[in-house]
Design a protein around this nucleic acid. Structure first.
Lengths: 247, 247
DNA sequence: AAGTGGTCTAGACCACATA
DNA sequence: ATGTGGTCTAGACCACTTC
């Protein structure tokens, strides 16, 4: 045996600020620093972690970009209460719905493991013959269906799919497969008959089709999700950060 | 008179790394460092700009996030050749079209200055009674219309709208009003009769409606654009960076 | 007034690229 | 071998928040 560490990524040769960020992230996720309240001051962290202040700041800056922390000058560095405004992510399901005080619900229409198709193998960068979990859900809010989501995940990245709660990401996180980057393609389309009936809308209504491929920190694809959202009820908000295309 | 500086934003009290970033950005845009090639080394920049290396790096990091620069360890810091893959921006008009070898064109359908409506005043954070430029275009590719764009810009941010080329952003840039952040809302819709005829598609075809509000570095709104894209021809790609919503 | 984050310096060593 | 970016330190002063 080498030593501790069960994660796949090697931390031994990483720069100090990366290690500090990991330590802090874990303490936050373990609830050792619990949401909403402040970290030790930067100067205290220096003593605790045995690093200079510049390095401590570089570590916390990472976590700020991830949305886990936020700093307030003169006050302190705080654990972000509930992970919030999604940067460049969807605007999104539970968020919108809860903001309107609607109850949200998820209906599973498929939960299965099978071998990956040729397309899935290619997109998820899997070895031939690998297994994938296929997860299809209808998202409800206020008793109405609002979206269909079809996710495909490499089978070894998920624990037991029969015990899956409503949050796919939470399950992925448990195995260290938290997605941190990705790409999303959005297009307008007209509802086909299957979609129309699942969403309780007329055929040829407008819908938003979204295809999303997310990846772990090490770049390995985690999740290919193709969704259809009711066009009259949902809009997708994304923050823009330079560089801007000259168009 | 105070001194030099014709810009509206006050640079006097900004931190050094902000000022350095501005100086570098200008030199790059003036072509003094010309695309594709390397900046002076960080240690040389320290002498030239009279700052420490940490500060110089913080400045170049800003420009890297903007996409103007990129660093290669052991080699140097380079001016990014053509501003490229847009992070979280549209995928986009000329880009896609040119990738397919289609000629792109723009037809102006309106270019006017008038006083802002109540809604425009609010969204663009203008004083009451301020003037705005309204710019409407149809985007063509391969001889076909592909999108309608309606932009509203505070009149004082644009030079002479009669001499406006095809690139709104280029014109904005000339007056130091380059947008660097923004928010974009995307939804699916069905084409109304006006849109259908401008885009040469049947009524009730699927279209993508996009509303975009961009801002300058100082946070002032620059441009409110509402567009309609032909749904069968366009899809919007956006990169995702954490934090991810748990959904 | 005391504590916090925000900025800055001068100097150091390492890892990588290039010749 | 030299030069480049990547990381790190120890200490300093400023601006802001909090009491």
């Amino acid at each position: 045996m080498k030593s501790a560490s069960a994660h796949s990524s090697e931390h031994s040769n990483s720069p100090i600020y990366i290690k500090l960020a990991h330590r802090l992230r874990q303490q936050i996720e373990d609830g050792a620093i619990s949401a909403g309240e402040a970290l030790p001051s930067e100067r205290d962290l220096c003593k605790i972690m045995g690093a200079s202040r510049v390095t401590v700041r570089k570590a916390t800056e990472l976590l700020i970009e991830e949305g886990l922390l936020s700093r307030r000058q003169g006050s302190g560095t705080y654990v972000t209460p509930r992970i919030q405004a999604p940067g460049s992510f969807l605007s999104s399901f539970s968020e919108d719905a809860e903001a309107r005080g609607e109850a949200t619900d998820t209906i599973w229409i498929m939960k299965a493991i099978g071998s990956a198709t040729e397309e899935e193998t290619r997109i998820l960068e899997l070895p031939k013959g690998a297994d994938v979990a296929r997860l299809s859900r209808v998202r409800m809010a206020g008793g109405e269906p609002l979206a269909i989501e079809n996710a495909v995940v490499p089978a070894d990245m998920l624990p037991d799919i029969t015990h899956l709660g409503n949050s796919l990401y939470q399950a992925l996180d448990q195995r260290g497969n938290r997605p941190v980057t990705g790409q999303q393609k959005i297009r307008a389309a007209l509802a086909g008959s299957t979609e129309a009936s699942l969403l309780s809308i007329p055929e040829n209504s407008e819908i938003l089709r979204i295809e999303r491929l997310t990846r772990r920190a090490d770049g390995r694809p985690v999740e290919l999700t193709r969704s259809a959202y009711r066009g009259e009820r949902y809009e997708f908000v994304s923050e823009l950060r330079g560089p801007f295309v000259v168009l």
